[in-house]
Structures are given as structure tokens and as C-alpha cells.
Computed example of a mutant assay.
Amino acid sequence: MSLASVKEHFKQWNRDKDIMEFDTSSATVEQAAETIGVIPARIAKTLSFRGDNNQAILVVTAGDAKIDNQKFRHFFGFKARMLSAEEVVEQTGHVIGGVCPFGLANDLGVYLDISLKRFETVFPACGSTNSAIELTCEELEKFSNAKSWIDVCKAWQDQELLEQIK
């Protein structure tokens, strides 16, 4: 059902036909990158955290980024605690591996990490473990109704420096 809700979400911009569905799994960053044919960092992964009043918040990051607990706590004012698989489905309407900030079951706060901004386009999932859509960062912000761009990740800068040295 969740791929259908994402397609319905994208109809308002006439982008529902741009959703790619694959014969193979795109549930992990590595699988999605291999299936789409891009580097893992360009996969926009959506992480689900327990927010205030037990309502989830979603943080969309680059595929090579990791949550920095200190930065997360400083920005949100509480410890980063991920939701269980059951809570993810209950809060978002999407299964793990297909979680995205589109076509959500509840009105959740969506935040985009600056680790994504180094790419012209990124590939978030579309509600199933075998789907994605290519979006610019501006489109991702608009279509997800993101509250803001934030800086709560680590490790991606290190990878970027390593690539510059090569």
C-alpha cells in the first residue's frame, strides 16, 4: 500500500510516472546504489527517530553519512533513538527499506541533512523495497515538505576528503 500512497503524493506535481520500480531489491543503500548504478552516497536514506510525544521525526541523509549523536542532541534537544520496525510502519506507513518522506501515514517532521547538498540529484526510496525516484535537492525539499536543512551527520566529510586526495 505504501508505494501507492507515494505515487498518489507525487501526482500533485505530475511526477508519479517518474517513480522507478525495480525487479531487484533497493532496500539497503548498497542494493539501491547497485540497482540504480550510482555511488552509495547519492542514495537519500530516510531514518526514523523517536521525537517528542512519541511522534516520529524523519531525517533524510546521504547514503554514506552516519548520525552524529552529539550534533543530533544539540539540534533536537534529545538523544537519537531509532524506531523499531513496527513503529516505523505505524508512524510512516512504509516498511524498512522503503521508508521515505513522501505519502506518509502521519504528518511527521521531515529534516534534510546537508550531506545531500553536494549532489546535483539524489535517489530516495518511494515506499517499497524496490523503488526510487531521482530528485534535485530543491525538489526533495519541496516534495517532502521538509522543515529545514540541518547538520546532524558525520563521516561523509571524511569520505569527501579522501576522494579529493586521490
Rank of each mutant, 00 (worst) to 15 (best):
S144T: 13
Q70V: 15
H94I: 06
F102M: 00
K71T: 06
I96M: 14
T46K: 05
F72P: 07
S84Y: 01
A132D: 10
H9T: 11
I36D: 00
G93P: 11
A125I: 06
L140H: 06
R73S: 15
I57A: 09
Q91P: 06
R42S: 02
L140A: 01
D151Y: 13
Q12D: 06
S25M: 03
V29W: 05
K79Y: 03
R73Q: 14
L47I: 08
M20E: 14
D158P: 03
I150H: 05
D107A: 15
L135R: 02
E138M: 01
F72C: 07
F78K: 01
Q12V: 02
A65T: 08
R15I: 04
A65M: 07
E139C: 06
A105W: 00
Y111M: 10
N69Q: 12
F123G: 02
E86T: 08
D18Q: 13
F22K: 05
K147C: 05
R118C: 07
I114T: 09
E138C: 00
F102H: 05
I133T: 07
D52A: 07
K71Q: 02
D151F: 12
S2P: 00
S148H: 11
I43C: 06
F75N: 10
K79Q: 07
Q157K: 14
E163L: 04
W156D: 07
V60F: 11
F10L: 15
L112N: 09
M1H: 13
I150L: 04
Y111K: 10
A65V: 01
A146V: 09
V152H: 13
N145L: 04
T92G: 09
P40W: 01
T46H: 07
D16P: 06
A27Y: 05
V99E: 14
V110E: 08
I39K: 02
C137R: 11
K142W: 03
F119N: 08
E141M: 15
F75K: 13
G51T: 09
D23S: 12
I36W: 05
S144L: 08
K7S: 04
T92F: 03
C153Y: 04
S84T: 15
A155Y: 11
E90C: 00
T35H: 05
V60R: 05
L104Q: 13
F143C: 02
I36P: 04
S144P: 15
V60A: 11
I165W: 11
K147T: 01
D16Q: 14
V38L: 05
R118W: 04
A32L: 14
E120I: 03
I114C: 14
C137T: 12
A146E: 12
L104G: 02
K7R: 15
N69F: 03
Q70E: 12
Q91D: 09
L104S: 11
L47A: 00
M82R: 04
H74K: 12
F78T: 00
M1D: 07
K66G: 07
L162N: 03
R50D: 04
V95P: 10
S128A: 10
R50E: 06
K66E: 15
Q55K: 15
C126H: 13
T24R: 13
C126Q: 14
K45P: 10
A80G: 03
K7I: 00
A27S: 12
S48K: 03
K11E: 12
L83T: 01
L112W: 01
V99H: 12
S84R: 06
V99N: 07
E8L: 09
N54F: 05
Q31Y: 03
E8A: 06
R42N: 02
D158E: 13
F119G: 07
N69W: 00
